[in-house]
Amino acid sequence: MRKVPVTNLYNAYVGLDCSMLEINPLFKTSDEKIIAVDCKMNLDDNSLMRHPELEALRDISEEDPTEVEAGKYNLNFRKTGRQRRLYGQWRRSGHGYDGHDQAQRR
């Protein structure tokens, strides 16, 4: 089997600063072509400044309305069980979420 689709998937994941990239299903045709039928991709919000062409593809209707509203004020909205929390811009870097959540529960 050719390794090119996997290499291309990896290159897209790294090159576009994805936090998730999934192709499902992937088909191999009778003439040995590989076809990606569906793709799901999440991009790191902090990397959009490096990829302005991707910001134009954003579909807000696919996002949680509460998260979209919080984003207008440079906040992150996270659902954690029944609790809801807002995090300021400094939290967007991904540092301390788990530790912060644990401290809140104690």
Results as ranks from 00 to 15, higher is better:
M1E: 14
M1D: 06
M1T: 13
K3H: 09
K3Y: 10
P5Y: 08
V6P: 00
T7E: 13
A12C: 04
A12V: 02
Y13Q: 04
V14S: 03
V14P: 00
L16D: 01
C18D: 07
S19Y: 02
L21T: 03
L21I: 05
E22Q: 15
E22P: 00
I23E: 01
I23L: 12
P25F: 04
P25M: 09
P25G: 03
F27E: 05
K28F: 07
K28E: 08
T29E: 10
T29A: 13
T29S: 15
S30L: 09
S30W: 10
S30H: 12
D31G: 10
E32N: 15
E32Y: 10
I34K: 02
A36H: 05
A36I: 11
V37Y: 08
D38L: 00
D38V: 05
D38I: 00
D38W: 03
C39D: 01
C39L: 13
D45H: 10
N46R: 11
S47K: 12
S47W: 07
L48C: 05
E53N: 07
E55P: 00
E55R: 13
E55M: 14
E55F: 10
R58W: 05
D59L: 13
D59H: 06
D59V: 15
D59A: 14
I60A: 08
E62G: 04
E62R: 14
D64T: 00
P65L: 02
T66C: 11
E67I: 02
A70S: 06
A70F: 02
G71N: 03
K72H: 07
K72F: 00
K72T: 01
N74Q: 13
N74K: 11
N74R: 08
N76T: 09
F77H: 15
R78N: 10
R78A: 08
G81W: 01
G81P: 03
R82C: 03
R82G: 05
Q83K: 09
Y87R: 04
G88I: 02
Q89M: 04
W90R: 12
W90D: 15
R92Y: 05
G94M: 02
G94W: 03
G94S: 05
G94F: 05
Y97C: 01
Y97S: 04
G99P: 00
H100V: 04
H100C: 11
D101V: 03
A103F: 10
Q104F: 10
R105Q: 12
